[in-house]
Amino acid sequence: MAKQDIEIKTADGLAKAGLFRPAGAAKAGAILYMDAFGPRRVLDAMAERLAGHGYAVLVPDLFYRNAPYGTFDVKTAFAVEETKVALMALVTGTTQDMTIRDSGAFLDALASEGITGPVGVVGYCMGGGRALNAAATYPDRIAAAASFHGGNLASEAPDSPHRKAASIKARVYVGTAGVDRSFPPEQSARLAEALRVAEVDHVIENYVGSGHGWCIPDHGSYDEAGAERHWKRLLAFFAETLA
């Protein structure tokens, strides 16, 4: 699967992105919202796998406002103070509101590449909440929104995704780690209640025994069986919703 490097004009500059096309005509477009460690080969491989099932997949650099920035060793980045500080500056400096604005440009980029119709979004870790907030902001363009080991999906923060549940028209799937300090049981219950009250078609599934980051191969908590289960769920979810 060939990667096409593109630049997307946003309100704040130019965001680099990878676009992965299927071998034949695309069934639909998809946006993959990255985790905190930024675009890298392992996310490209995940996008390639999704593209192999017929989707045109966009993987944008959410940290583009701070480019160029260094690469990070996922397994040690938070253990070394220097890289931990650099990473947290990128994460906290890229707000939910920024990504929400950018997501309109991401959707336009797919359309400009000839990929029209309903779009699916999927986010990992910090990308999970961004996928849900994008679905709430662009309800007529995003038909499916998935989050895997997403953090702070129903926190006290004013930009917490659960607060926008009433605006979501997409189907929602949330896969949670068995134990995850960034998405504890009380947040899961709060998110479920918000989606239920808003009459959003949703599933929240607990991957018991899996840790935060279990889907992504370069994470220390990667779990192959859990990752394959996530692929089975994501592909079925997109097939049912975007067909």
Results as ranks from 00 to 15, higher is better:
residue 110 L to M: 07
residue 189 A to K: 12
residue 119 V to S: 05
residue 208 V to G: 04
residue 103 S to Y: 08
residue 193 E to I: 07
residue 7 E to T: 11
residue 92 T to M: 14
residue 31 I to F: 02
residue 182 S to R: 03
residue 194 A to T: 11
residue 111 A to F: 09
residue 222 Y to C: 00
residue 186 E to V: 05
residue 130 R to W: 02
residue 11 A to L: 14
residue 215 C to T: 09
residue 176 T to D: 03
residue 47 A to E: 02
residue 233 R to F: 03
residue 23 A to H: 13
residue 212 H to L: 06
residue 20 F to I: 12
residue 196 R to T: 13
residue 54 G to T: 12
residue 231 W to R: 13
residue 163 R to N: 14
residue 72 F to V: 12
residue 28 A to C: 04
residue 235 L to V: 03
residue 16 K to M: 02
residue 152 N to F: 01
residue 132 L to V: 08
residue 242 L to T: 01
residue 125 C to L: 08
residue 142 I to W: 13
residue 233 R to S: 11
residue 87 L to K: 01
residue 17 A to S: 07
residue 241 T to W: 06
residue 85 V to Q: 07
residue 51 A to I: 00
residue 100 I to N: 15
residue 116 T to E: 01
residue 27 K to E: 06
residue 35 D to S: 04
residue 130 R to D: 08
residue 103 S to Q: 08
residue 243 A to E: 12
residue 229 R to M: 08
residue 145 A to Y: 15
residue 62 L to Q: 14
residue 113 E to R: 09
residue 41 R to M: 11
residue 137 T to G: 09
residue 137 T to L: 14
residue 58 L to W: 01
residue 100 I to Y: 09
residue 94 T to M: 07
residue 120 G to T: 06
residue 228 E to F: 03
residue 29 G to M: 00
residue 237 F to S: 10
residue 213 G to E: 01
residue 100 I to E: 10
residue 160 S to I: 07
residue 13 G to M: 00
residue 233 R to Y: 05
residue 76 T to E: 13
residue 77 A to R: 05
residue 237 F to A: 02
residue 125 C to N: 10
residue 206 N to K: 06
residue 39 P to A: 10
residue 212 H to V: 05
residue 169 K to M: 08
residue 110 L to T: 00
residue 99 T to S: 13
residue 55 Y to P: 08
residue 165 A to P: 00
residue 53 H to T: 14
residue 239 A to F: 06
residue 77 A to K: 01
residue 128 G to L: 14
residue 116 T to D: 01
residue 11 A to I: 10
residue 192 A to C: 09
residue 65 R to Y: 12
residue 204 I to L: 08
residue 230 H to D: 04
residue 78 F to V: 13
residue 13 G to W: 01
residue 171 R to K: 15
residue 231 W to K: 02
residue 143 A to Y: 12
residue 135 A to M: 05
residue 164 K to L: 12
residue 233 R to A: 06
residue 171 R to G: 15
residue 58 L to T: 00
residue 118 P to E: 01
residue 120 G to E: 02
residue 87 L to D: 06
residue 119 V to R: 11
residue 26 A to K: 04
residue 228 E to N: 12
residue 65 R to K: 07
residue 20 F to T: 03
residue 106 F to D: 00
residue 104 G to Y: 05
residue 103 S to C: 15
residue 51 A to R: 01
residue 115 I to L: 00
residue 136 A to N: 06
residue 241 T to V: 06
residue 131 A to C: 05
residue 28 A to K: 03
residue 74 V to I: 13
residue 1 M to S: 12
residue 190 R to H: 12
